[in-house]
Design a protein around this nucleic acid. Structure first.
Length: 161
DNA sequence: GCCAACGTTGGC
DNA sequence: GCCAACGTTGGC
């Protein structure tokens, strides 16, 4: 079980670039390439080791929640910002003043059945969840404890169907 | 500091 | 592939 003061999160990834199966295979990964200040600030200021993280697949035929990870290392500079050949290279970032940070995520579990976005939208218990807001594009976002617990229940119920 | 242009995300 | 939403950039 997460610590009492744990916060809950959600990260998005396109399964073609890095899926829950990739994370399961790697066991943990550095969450490189976040280039949005709001998302960065969540990682830098609020994500703590042990925090549970919902894993969301965006794009594709059926976007939805596919599993669970947890934060395994707190924020540190994203090395890709310094790599000229990386598509995440940022010429304005320096080692003295890095602009982008990341956290490490560790695989926790893959849901037996994914929870499609269109199903999530049908539960009024999840009303107000950032993921479900129109035009919402943040790739790292907070999840309330209530929403997180409800989603855990949904995942268990979906596995039994 | 405003705001138009542009680029990206992501559902459909 | 389309397009709405939104963030960033850059001219002024």
């Amino acid at each position: 079980m997460p610590k009492k003061n744990a916060k809950y999160w959600l990260v998005k990834s396109e399964p073609e670039s890095y899926s829950i199966d990739d994370l399961a295979r790697d066991e943990s990964t550095a969450w490189t390439g976040v280039r949005n200040y709001q998302a960065r600030n969540f990682m830098r200021d609020e994500m703590q080791v042990g925090d549970p993280v919902l894993y969301y697949h965006s794009g594709g035929a059926e976007p939805g929640l596919v599993g669970l990870a947890k934060v395994s290392r707190a924020a540190y500079p994203d090395p890709t910002q310094f790599e000229k050949k990386s598509k995440y290279y940022d010429p304005k970032a320096t080692h003295d003043e890095p602009r982008w940070v990341l956290v490490d995520l560790a695989f926790e579990k893959k849901f037996d059945a994914p929870l499609p976005l269109k199903e999530l939208k049908q539960h009024e218990e999840l009303e107000g969840m950032p993921l479900l807001q129109r035009g919402q594009r943040l790739s790292v976002q907070p999840v309330s404890a209530e929403h997180f617990k409800f989603i855990e229940k949904l995942a268990k119920a979906a596995a039994k169907r």
